[in-house]
Design a protein around this nucleic acid. Structure first.
Lengths: 338, 338
DNA sequence: GTGAAAGCGCTAACAA
DNA sequence: TTGTTAGCGCTTTCAC
């Protein structure tokens, strides 16, 4: 392994001169820089990252912290970010939290100890105080979900609209008993989505009857059980809105396997725009969310922020709006169901 | 940032004692280890990787190199590996190649210069010579795809069976004009799959007529075009087998949007076991591949290999068999199509 | 402009 | 069983 000492010896100068020349320090003469660069190239010098990092310089690692990479939301983001950061010489590391605050803390600890240049995180519902502290010491950006405690740089979708739009669509179709299966309100996104649901339902006036089923964001089981419970009621809902991709998948699976007639018996509006939603039953009415674009914007911003060395954590939020896609799974409330 | 010195000071012992206790050195008394661990946890101590690496210990980074993380095959693997490696204190880094050998080389360069502990790679069709050389210097395991040049440690599925089984299934249903849409033979997996197709088709004797359409593994466009071409023929196939997840998705999409009658007009057998395959049209007959299990096995093996410090690159291959799942998209060849 | 020297946090030889 | 000490390769004062 060639070190700056080797180069220094070869050039009969001190190691610090070489180090400075390599760092393009303004105090070093152009000719010296020239010679150093030449010899370095010739000897096949490669900077020792570990040593550099020990001196406080952060690595080229960027930590991506998500609940579960198998969720297409997050793998799409990972892809977009990877593309974006790679161009600038950053390496993406992957950490999964399972939406568990302890796991999240462990991961953040790992990342900070690895001296990452920054962290892009989809935070859990209630990050640990220690997590907050550690993130405070590292440049970081929140993705999708936002916690005030974790700073003011955030890239997300308009969660409110993402549920408001499909719900309003159903209300306009005449539905009054509308169910919502989604994430708990303790998640900031969960809260906004529930609010979107309620506000849209309020458009129906006094007739509107919301049936909310809120559970863990990653739990398919919860969604299936919630759906069964709803359908078993004496006055089951005539329409259903889901508030997360995983819940949508679970609901589609359950509806499919239990043979519920959609939209005859139940109108359904999903969340996210998976390819398969198109061919599910009559085609699923759903909200498309520009996840890839969002992640790219986040990556660009991150790079931009890293370039200006000064600790920049100026508040910045980007909210991307969703798009309602109407397919066959929603239709006007029928006389039978009315 | 808490260092071993802080712990040492708190415990009134020397830093080396703490270091040794943390490293579970046999010379340290159990009670001391106990106390150190306790205080370390309490103070939120996190080892400084950079410092450790400088002492020659390789990093705790493991590079995962895949074509595209959005492919559920690969995100499933990333998840399983992450879980597996995290327990042993490893951090997974993500690199995408787009199945391009130049990109692959760049990524491998990055990883080796970052001193990764090892690399788990789904190699591209024809890795660059430099890639081969660099991988030779780093512990690595091939996943899914296998190149002789990249060593003898490999975890994969039985590609041959994965296509042989569905094809035989179709032959047994009486189909004779069977098409195959899959990856090019230049990929080792692609070759085995094509062979599986041909061998199964041979069971039909002289009547069997294979129609092979081979293209880039990641190209949806190719698969759609290939399907259109097949259906436009004067004597279109009565059955279709796909040889990769992405091609399967593309085919399902195309069949769905062009309104082809499955299985009336065409029997279809897919590749992989996506949740959505169940509810596509009449339910897709497909081969389930134990991707998660495969990745876990690979992760365990990696950890095992790392533990025994000696450079161990003894050949090891693990081949996991697929399972055919018969649903509604395949049926005996009808009189109209015969 | 350049050199000398002091560490960064950790591990590992050498002492005790 | 534990303490002392010397670096790993680099950056960064402080001298000159």
């Amino acid at each position: 392994m060639i070190t700056i000492k080797d180069i220094a010896a070869r050039l009969q100068v001190s190691p610090s001169t070489v180090g400075r020349a390599l760092a393009d320090d303004s105090r070093i003469s152009a000719s010296m820089k020239q010679r150093v660069l030449e010899v370095a190239g010739e000897m096949g010098y490669v900077a020792n990252r570990a040593a550099r990092m020990m001196r406080g310089v952060s690595s080229n690692l960027v930590g991506l912290v998500v609940p579960d990479i198998r969720n297409s939301f997050f793998s799409t983001m990972a892809h977009a970010l990877s593309k974006c950061l790679e161009q600038e010489g950053y390496q993406l590391t992957l950490s999964e939290t399972d939406d568990d605050r302890q796991t999240e803390l462990r991961q953040i600890r790992e990342l900070t100890s690895a001296n990452v240049a920054g962290i892009i995180i989809v935070p859990s519902a209630k990050p640990h105080a220690e997590t907050v502290r550690l993130l405070g010491m590292t440049p970081h950006i929140q993705l999708l979900r936002k916690h005030a405690a974790l700073g003011e740089q955030w890239f997300g979708i308009d969660d409110y609209q993402a549920v408001y739009q499909p719900t309003r669509h159903l209300v306009e179709l005449g539905h009054r008993r509308i169910a919502y299966i989604g994430s708990l309100g303790e998640l900031p996104t969960g809260g906004a989505r529930v609010k979107g649901f309620r506000d849209a339902l309020a458009l129906a006036g006094g007739d509107g009857q919301g049936m909310e089923q809120l559970g863990a964001p990653g739990s398919r089981e919860f969604a299936r059980d919630a759906l069964r419970g709803l359908l078993a009621q004496p006055q089951p809902p005539t329409a259903l809105v889901t508030g997360s991709v995983l819940h949508t998948f679970a609901v589609l699976e359950e509806l499919w396997s239990s043979g519920v007639d959609v939209p005859g018996q139940l109108s359904v509006a999903g969340f996210g725009d998976e390819l398969a939603f198109r061919w599910w039953g009559p085609g699923l009415t759903t909200v498309a969310l520009p996840v890839s674009e969002l992640a790219t914007a986040c990556g660009l911003w991150f790079v931009h922020r890293m370039k200006q060395k000064s600790a920049n954590s100026a508040p910045y939020s980007s909210i991307t709006p969703p798009t309602l896609i109407v397919r066959g799974s929603t239709r006007p409330v029928g006389p039978a169901a009315a």
